[in-house]
Design a protein around this nucleic acid. Structure first.
Length: 521
RNA sequence: GGCCCCAUGGUCAAGCGGUUAAGACACCGCCCUUUCACGGCGGUAACGCGGGUUCGAGUCCCGCUGGGGUCACCA
């Protein structure tokens, strides 16, 4: 028996290798359903679409797939918009900016879907089905137990138009199914996967229209892709298996086929689908966690794509130049927070100081650590403190943490530092002595304090480091940080003296001289 | 379970028949520094398994294993 091959050709557009651009206008879309926040996987798909559109001088369209009335919310829609604004990805056409192919929310395009449905019914490419949910479930179970794909039997496929009409008039609410080919095969031409062949025998007459009078996702999506003249469909891998259905839908609609590209998925560290239990999954959560959008977008690019020169730091603008759909990996990528954090640290260190001053001001005022109406001097002071701490911070939260000691005396001392720098004979007295000497230093700036510390050390017959470390611990509570003299100048004489004595008291109270002598030997 | 996709270090990822199998993150040393961080230098670490094809296979073919996706009146 002859097997009829059902070949599907790509639209006649020159998509070539290398750096050649696609000729003709490129139109791509990102079509989220507003039922939650923007997932990082979605963000990456959107970014790839955006890059492809931008590098080909085409258009990227934001379409809202909100045919699921029950789950779609306005809040989610707003959230998605906000995430894209933050990511720095703009759309040429969307519900917000409009465009020639609107409206861009599927809930406002119902009349278009109805039109297309009746056209397809008339052309007998789609037919009503009156089977009950129970019947269908039973069929599915039966097929599965036979080890086959769960498919619709095609029971209503050959219902006479007269009978169908009678049942509808009698009040039956049918669903509508696409008359799909049952023999042959369908080939999906995919820019990333190559040619993928599906046996049509695996396909069934799937539902395009629900009994409640709403189109299914597949139907609305394809009708819109045709109506909005999409040339390329760049979407997540999970849709690859659905693509034969979409192809037959495009064909039924009498449309040319768009070019497909299925990008691999993003997996959690345990190789399962990334979900809530793995931590942050939405763009919004990363924003709140202090990740910079430049870093996130850079990271997302590197997940599944690598520039030809293997660069790691790639801006949006550079990515537009070097991105290549054909170079996108075929395999799923495991999400690695460490690398994101590294990228974030790299970008964070490059943030201009004045931006950080501005951002921190509000937080410091909230905690009562900074005057509501800071003077120019206060601002300059903060800026200096930030500059010293910025290189040592990977994100804004760390920066804040690293600035904390300027506003509060240490409540405890780093344990290792304590043993190393405090629990030695004579430290308590030495700190008191330093406080006394420091009270006489004029001016109390970094250069002057540094000079005096050198003199003190020489006088005591010690290395400067022996003075520096206990001082740092007494002043900040930790062993690391900016240069000590810079810290001291910023902290001011009064704070320094106070904390030196505080530390001395602490040592005296917890570890009297005799106890130290016997325990540090 | 049927169908489809995928498979290089812990992770991302170069490689597209002949390489000492890149690079990045992470990790570990060393250097720089008063300390920390940055930076520099160095190190540990990979072609899932089995068959072919070939003078030669990480690269091509087949099988297996493993992972993922899909099979809704969800999108």
């Amino acid at each position: 028996m002859a097997v009829r091959r059902f070949f599907v050709s790509m639209r006649p557009m020159t998509q070539t290798e290398g750096n050649q651009k696609v000729t003709g206008e490129v139109r791509v879309r990102f079509a989220p359903s507003p039922t939650g926040t923007l997932h990082i996987g979605g963000a990456r798909t959107a970014y790839f679409n955006w890059l492809f559109a931008r590098q080909n001088g085409g258009s990227i369209i934001l379409r809202i797939d909100d045919t699921d009335q029950a789950r779609s919310t306005e809040a989610s829609y707003q959230q998605i918009l906000q995430s894209f604004a933050w990511l720095g990805l703009d759309f040429d056409e969307s519900p917000e900016v409009g465009g020639d192919y609107g409206p861009y929310r599927q809930s406002q395009r119902l009349h278009i879907y109805r039109e297309q449905l009746s056209r397809l019914v008339e052309e007998e490419k789609v037919y009503p089905c009156f089977c009950s949910a129970e019947e269908l479930t039973a069929e599915r179970e039966a097929a599965k137990s036979r080890g086959q794909a769960a498919r619709y039997s095609g029971k209503c496929r050959n219902l006479s138009p007269a009978e169908a009409k009678a049942r509808i008039e009698a009040g039956d609410k049918p669903v509508y199914r696409l008359r799909a080919p049952q023999t042959g095969s369908t080939v999906v031409s995919d820019l990333i996967r190559g040619e993928v062949t599906f046996d049509n025998g695996e396909l069934d007459d799937f539902i395009v229209w629900k009994a409640d009078g709403m189109p299914t996702y597949h139907f609305a999506s394809c009708v819109d892709d045709v109506a909005m003249k999409m040339t390329h469909i760049i979407r997540a891998d999970e849709h690859l298996s659905n693509t034969p259905r979409h192809i037959h839908l495009f064909l039924a609609l009498g449309a040319e086929l768009p070019v497909f590209a299925h990008v691999p998925m993003i997996l959690a560290p345990d190789r399962s689908k990334l979900s809530k239990r793995h931590g942050a999954t939405s763009v919004e959560e990363y924003r709140e966690a202090g990740i910079l959008s430049d870093a996130l977008v850079n990271y997302l690019l590197l997940l599944g794509f690598s520039p030809e020169d293997n660069r790691e730091l790639v801006s949006r603008k550079e990515a537009v130049e070097m991105f290549h759909l054909e170079r996108v990996a075929k395999h799923a990528a495991v999400y690695d927070v460490k690398k994101l954090e590294w990228l974030n640290a790299t970008y964070f260190r490059a943030v201009p100081a004045h931006t950080l001053v501005h951002r921190l001001l509000e937080k410091l005022r909230d905690t009562g650590d900074f005057p509501d109406d800071p003077s120019a001097q206060d601002l300059a002071w903060l800026r200096t403190a930030i500059v010293f701490a910025q290189d040592r911070s990977r994100n804004e939260a760390e920066l804040q943490e690293n600035l904390r000691f300027y506003f509060r005396a240490p409540e405890s001392y780093d344990e290792k530092g304590l043993r190393k720098h405090f629990l030695k004979p004579g430290v308590e007295q030495r700190l008191r002595w330093l406080a006394e000497k420091l009270s006489l230093v004029r001016p109390f700036d970094a250069a002057s304090v540094e000079m005096h510390y050198a003199q003190y050390a020489a006088h005591l017959g010690l290395k400067t480091a022996d003075l520096i470390h206990p001082t740092r611990l007494a002043l900040t509570g930790v062993t690391g940080g900016p240069g000590l003299y810079d810290i001291m100048a910023l902290l001011g004489r009064r704070n320094c003296l106070e904390r030196l004595l505080l530390a001395a008291d602490y040592i005296g109270a917890h570890w009297p001289e005799d106890k130290i002598a016997s325990s540090t030997d």
